[in-house]
Design a protein around this nucleic acid. Sequence first.
DNA 1: AATGGGTCTTGACAACTGTCCAGAAGAAGG
DNA 2: CCTTCTTCTGGACAGTTGTCAAGACCCATT
Lengths: 221, 221
Amino acid sequence: MTITPAAGPDTSTLRGASTPARSRRGTGSYDDRRDRLADSALVTLGELGYARTSLREIAANSEFTHGVIHYYFRDKTELITYCVRYYKATCVTRYDDVIKDSTTADGLVRGFADKLVETITDEAPMHRLWYDLRTQSMFDAALREDVLYIDATLETMVWRVLERYAALAGRPVRLPSSTAYAMLDGVFERALLRHVCGDARALDQLHATVLGTLPLLLADA
Amino acid sequence: MTITPAAGPDTSTLRGASTPARSRRGTGSYDDRRDRLADSALVTLGELGYARTSLREIAANSEFTHGVIHYYFRDKTELITYCVRYYKATCVTRYDDVIKDSTTADGLVRGFADKLVETITDEAPMHRLWYDLRTQSMFDAALREDVLYIDATLETMVWRVLERYAALAGRPVRLPSSTAYAMLDGVFERALLRHVCGDARALDQLHATVLGTLPLLLADA
DNA sequence: AATGGGTCTTGACAACTGTCCAGAAGAAGG
DNA sequence: CCTTCTTCTGGACAGTTGTCAAGACCCATT
């Protein structure tokens, strides 16, 4: 998958627009290999966390050697930044099916809860990496622009779910988008923490919490 | 302030119970200097974040030299762990005055919102450090025990506020303690992120959000 | 004054980090 | 074949890290 940033922070790199589509060596185009490197990096980052992940470790878990990284990325910051944007593309559409396929308010709530549990089960390393990067942005200004942009994207993603829920229920959401997102994110982050720490009940509790909480976000009938 | 862990994870160090109360050198007792070292460390950690803070940096910002750290702490992990516990002691009583002094439900909500804004204004580095450590615990098992214990402590701290609020309002809280904490924590974390990133409206919005949201946590009249 | 032990300083060590570079490897075009 | 360009390798560099140890310092007791 080649990332195609539609909006948001500047995505230009050191290479001009005339990037060669075909490579001389290796498989796939220049951008393909860049993305595969970012893909490997994300796996390693999700495993070790931002702080402990070195460029050599990233390279070791990829098809490249450590020297190549500086061929595709100017420095570590550019690699991380690119990875963050790459990550975003993999998660913005996560709940679109829930929105599209639900025909009742209760069905949407169940589908949403199921999806939250599923994504923690399948993609916990990616989620903890996101929280890691978001927290790091409080110390490292270089990450802020991207983090805030992705956070806003996630907020609208959640808001689309709630708007559909409100429409199906015939009652408006009684909280602003920012508050609703912050609350649900807090619930999700807590469940992720418990789950990663080995709490077997974390996912069931998340499911129950979402079922019990989402109705409270709508105005009274 | 000397930390006196009442409950929670094991706090024992390499030194036995017969710790000398008076030192031969430096000012204060052995435990005093240990705490002052932890105090310096927390300031540095809050400034740079867990990942970027080295033992030499901690020592440079303290009254000690870098070698002393291994005299008071076995290794970096023990220092961090001690700091985390030390941190907890400084924040568990944060809202006790609000609980004690409030005489009306609305007054408690205002006092709580004021206090949240105040603590972000005054102690933002400490808060972002907490979120940093909590996130790191998802990657580093050594931190988990302490993090989960502190998180539980914060939950009961928030719960005490809500119980008092419910009593003053004459309506019960309609969410379990865990959910209520997760939601408010999400709102708080978001406000902190915005604030640290330079968003001047973050604190006003936090205040307004708390005023608007807390009533929703109680059952209908 | 001498001793002994708690406290602290200083320098060293190996391991690791991001970055850079000289050159090899390989494909495309002449 | 030879040249040219992209791609990649492997090593080197300087800086930083946690950890340790030899010894200096200082105070209390004898």
